[in-house]
């Protein structure tokens, strides 16, 4: 009798889990303000979370977030622990070999910040002999390899956060990352004290052009179409602009 009760409970639990077929959004558990970060109570907040809410509202779907280490996101997607990667992942050819992407939902503009007493600007001449902190395997790292590798030194960091820490303590001359998080850092006390915006690097569509999109399992066409439709819809009906106002004074799309 006891075993039957347990078996029955388990069956019900399984069905219950199935009935709430939420879309699970995988988010890297490192802080990446203003896109994704956690508030004091551990709740996910940020630009991308607002975007996710708007998309899910548009789709009339239940959405949940799943915390995963940045380098575990693609494996987690492939092993079906999550359905979408929603974590400022740039659309690159290398990644496209493993996963699909939705249409872009924002454009990755690459900028540099540096110490206030350093030179201003981001031209080749000004980069000469400088040490530039870049998070491993980002579009910025690819950009560096193509444009600055001969004249400057790259210092690799596991996260953007750590490169900013080292910039503040004077160990590197520039931090090279996505514009959003850099501007966010410059608003903090630490950032205000040490550093200033040096500029956005020259466009390179081959590396920076594709933008940031949601990562989708290969062959999951249905979800891809749904999300693409929702992104298009919230661009058109003003929802995107509405929550974007909270974070940026420009349109990052």
């Amino acid at each position: 009798m006891k075993y039957r009760t347990i078996a029955l409970t388990l069956t019900i639990l399984c069905f219950a889990a199935d009935a709430h077929a939420d879309i699970r959004f995988g988010i890297a558990n490192e802080a990446y303000p203003p896109y994704t970060t956690k508030d004091a109570s551990g709740k996910e907040i940020g630009w991308e979370i607002d975007l996710m809410d708007a998309v899910c509202q548009q789709l009339h779907e239940q959405c949940t977030t799943v915390d995963i280490a940045w380098d575990g996101l693609i494996p987690a997607l492939e092993s079906k622990k999550i359905d979408v990667i929603w974590s400022s992942m740039s659309i690159t050819d290398e990644r496209k070999k493993r996963i699909d992407f939705t249409d872009k939902y924002y454009s990755a503009a690459a900028s540099m910040i540096g110490a206030k007493d350093g030179v201003a600007g981001v031209t080749d001449e000004q980069m000469k002999g400088k040490t530039i902190g870049i998070a491993v395997s980002t579009t910025q790292s690819a950009y560096f390899q193509k444009h600055f590798a001969d004249i400057a030194t790259e210092k690799s960091y596991a996260t953007v956060d750590e490169s900013l820490q080292d910039l503040a303590s004077g160990r590197i001359d520039y931090a090279f990352a996505d514009t959003g998080p850099l501007k966010e850092f410059l608003k903090t006390d630490l950032g205000k004290g040490c550093c200033e915006f040096k500029g956005t690097v020259a466009a390179d569509d081959e590396i920076l052009g594709a933008g940031v999109g949601g990562g989708i399992r290969k062959g999951d066409e249905e979800l891809k179409q749904k999300l693409n439709g929702a992104i298009k819809a919230i661009r058109a009906n003003g929802k995107y602009a509405e929550f974007n106002k909270k974070y940026f004074d420009y349109d990052p799309y």
């Binding site: 380098d71 290398e94 493993r98 491993v136 395997s137 690799s156």
Partner: peptide, 15 residues
Amino acid sequence: MDLYGAAYKIRQDTL
């Protein structure tokens, strides 16, 4: 960038 760091970078680059 020790040996583990190199492996980490390769993992990130090649997925």
